[in-house]
Structures are given as C-alpha cells and as structure tokens.
Amino acid sequence: MTRINVTVDGVTYEEDVEPRLLLVHLLRDRLGRTGTPIGCDTSNCGACTVMLEGRSVKSCSVLAVQVDGQDIVTVEGLASGGTDWHPMQRAFHEEHALQCGYCTPGMIMAAIDLLKDDPDPSDEAIRKGLEGNLCRCTGYTNIVRAVRRGAHSMSQDPEAAAAGARSAEEL
C-alpha cells in the first residue's frame, strides 16, 4: 500500500492505495465520485475524462499513485456551490446534447478543456478537440452545438466558468 494525498472537487483525501489502483477506480469506488463513468476501459472512449492539474486526462489510464499531491476536478465539481450548473453543463442540457448520457461527463470535461486554448472555437475545432471522446448514440451534432453555446455563455460569465478550477481553499 502507498499513501497518497489527493484533492478531488475541492476536498482533500488521504488514502492508502495499491499501486495498481486506477484513478477512475479511486474516484468511483473509494471516493464515491460515480459521476465519472468507465466506458471502454482502453483509453479510447473518453467517458472517464477528468481534469488533472487543470488539464483533461483519461482517468482509466492514470494510476492513483501518480496523482499524489495533485488536484482533480470531476464533472461533479463543476457546479458552483454544488448547485448552479456550470455553463457547459447548462449548454448540454439546453441543446439536448445527449441521448443515453453515458459519454456526457467526459464530453463536458473535454469541452471545457478545449476552451482553455480556444475560447471561441469553430465547429471544426470543436470536433477536433473532442476527437478523444466517443458518443455511441451518434449525437455529435447537438454536442458541437452545445459546446458552441457553452463557449458563448462562458465568455459572458467568466466567474461561473472558473468554478471548475476552484481550489479547496475557495470552496
């Protein structure tokens, strides 16, 4: 067992973990963050995408021991004050950018990540930015629309947009 400290959605945890424990299993099985699903388990589908130190990663392809001392935000940490949806969550809701919803947490995290580099992306840039995230309901058209709407909202409301990046102290 290896002892790790990790901050997830603003809360710091100390956990003893086996080195082989995957980050996604730490999040789901130990910390109860079941908002992050396991899709393909082969780093193809992106359903398990979370922010690690502010950038998107696939949590099925990271060991829990590798994130010792680092900061993670899951889809459950996006809503400010735990109640008001992040503008990107709202945009996915308003544009009906989901059918079964399984890919949605990863899509939202990847979308927020892509806006960090390109706050006003073209449809092509959105499709390219989400290339690591698969939707098997084939709902990509509405997903692209939602990311565009989310980008617009975030440019209008930077404070809400920053919620996902809040650290433990702020929350």
């Binding site: 690690l52 950038r55 998107s56 990663v57 696939k58 392809s61 290339e131 690591g132």
Partner: peptide, 9 residues
C-alpha cells in the same frame, strides 16, 4: 498522436 487528453499525459 492519439487525442488531447492522451497528449496531456
């Protein structure tokens, strides 16, 4: 190489 999330790691 792969996709943005993989390129971050």
């Amino acid at each position: 190489v792969a996709d943005p999330a993989v390129r971050h790691r």
